[in-house]
């Protein structure tokens, strides 16, 4: 699994951080998404897919 972000579109809702906190974070100055792990281990895959599914701004793209 490989994750790419279009962070310019991020509206800082924070849903990805709630769902997959080991993969996503928010930067301190404006809460915009930060990728902690672009190629997460298998145990994170379900959470990452969930984060991509509920991201309100469709920022997270998952390549499998």
């Amino acid at each position: 699994m490989k994750i790419t972000l279009d962070a310019d579109k991020c509206c800082a809702a924070g849903q990805c951080v709630l769902v997959a906190p080991e993969v996503f974070d928010q930067r301190d100055e404006d809460g915009v998404v930060v990728l902690l792990d672009a190629e997460p281990a298998a145990d994170q895959h379900a959470a990452v897919r969930e984060a991509a599914a509920i991201c309100p701004a469709a920022v997270i793209e998952v390549h499998e």
Partner: peptide, 15 residues
């Protein structure tokens, strides 16, 4: 919208 919202987004981020 983006400019104004981002002035306060940090205040409501998860951490």
């Amino acid at each position: 919208h983006t400019r104004l919202r981002r002035m306060v987004t940090r205040e409501f981020m998860v951490k």
